[in-house]
Design a protein around this nucleic acid. Sequence first.
RNA 1: CGGGGUGUAGCGCAGUCCGGUAGCGCACCUGGUUUGGGACCAGGGGGUCCCAGGUUCGAAUCCUGGUACCCCGACCA
Length: 491
Amino acid sequence: MAKVLTSREESYAQWYNDLVLKADLAENSAVRGCMVIKPYGYAIWEKMQRVLDDMFKETGHQNAYFPLFIPKSFFSKEAAHVDGFAKECAVVTHYRLKNDPDGKGVIVDPDAKLEEEYIVRPTSETIIWNTYKNWIQSYRDLPILVNQWANVVRWEMRTRLFLRTAEFLWQEGHTAHATRQEAIEETETMLKVYAKFAEEWMAMPVVQGYKTANERFAGALETLTIEALMQDGKALQSGTSHFLGQNFAKAFDVTFANQDGKLDHVWATSWGVSTRLMGALVMSHSDDNGLVLPPKLAPIQVVIVPIYKKAEELERINEVVDGLVVRLKSLGISVKYDNDDKRKPGWKFAEYELKGVPVRLAVGPRDLENGTMEVARRDTLTKEIMPLEGIETKVQQLLNDIQENIYKKALDFRTAHTTKVDDYEEFKRLLDEKGGFFLCHWDGTPETEERIKNETKATIRCIPMDAPEEEGQCMVTGKPSDRRVLFARSY
RNA sequence: CGGGGUGUAGCGCAGUCCGGUAGCGCACCUGGUUUGGGACCAGGGGGUCCCAGGUUCGAAUCCUGGUACCCCGACCA
């Protein structure tokens, strides 16, 4: 087969880029740092959205929509929040263009300068809390459980398709609660939703944990995260859920009367996942032949390719396949019958492999004679001949097997690349030689964390939720530590 | 924002050192033979050589300035 991708070994970054482009997921646009998500890539995102949206609804949330533009003054009300985002905000200063008096084209009309500039939202906490202020008077108005699907803009220095783009699509949940406890529970619930989505739909194992103070969201008291391990041994933060305490309520003066009639500030959370998940999906499972998609998120789960010489043969194949398509669809399987005469079987095989279609069925004259089909699975690249009779249930089972298998494969990889290390020199050595996750003792100080980051480029991805208590000594300072934390180099 | 690289047909590239009027592969169009892992043969169409200025009889090629994108770093989801 013609190699269309750079191999992972040759250059992981180039492989990723080639794959996103060649599998028709996305491409760079005329706008610096902004991508075009192509129909096939967007179809995957839509599946992600649908599943997540259902999960949000099941946990009691409703969707709403807030403005793209945020008055600069709103933005600056929460000090930590400003610090976190100020350096990467796009700003709208004018509202009109006019013809260039000196010639061709248009210029910004200097007479149309805005009284107050708008920030293009990098996240919506400020506009939302300014709004919630009007929605909340009493404990009876709480909780507010709202999510929005939106685009946001963060003017990044360096961008990579899906992993970091100047504009990206995401969802942001913003909730308001009467008690601290309830808000904390919400934060945890939503992290669990993300973890479940990552593992059961994306087939991507994640570590759930707490961010250290350094890595926390700007304005949060606690940030929970799911961290996934990519095939090149780097971590990818794949979703975050923040306990915001009363910070935004105080900044925007959002109070409510509790059951005792006393005024209190509202407790807040926010949580989000973005199109970055697309990058995570690509880097979790794919190989040098192309994309490998989990069946549960694949836009096309089964593709059927006819093999024929004459038009009469195709007609006979069509008859057989048409019935099968109906049976597969009735099982809820998304199937594409590609009997396009302009492409040949070999071309189609390669194309659907590149695009990560989990199962491919091929039917030719031999199969018509024998009452069989050739069944090929993308994850293992294996093929077998199966009887046509009852093949739809076999295919359904196969899709489940593939979903499980790629999860297991990713989990095995993570297990093999998660190392307990107690010695700092060994940590540095293994970080270069092996990569992956490292479980190490840390003295809990931002200074030590910073030092490790500067010296090794590894950061604390999280303090895992399930980390067992374990007496130990910080690998750098030797000071006491009561549990191991998760280190890695990351995207 | 620093370092490196690249802009030539829809895509991938050669040609640039050493100036002479643009080429290869894929894709596309026509016809035929093909079709169980990216088919083959024959014919054909397609270019402001990133932009602007300069040098020259003549610039894809040399000079000056600009611009866009990619990769590596610092910053971040």
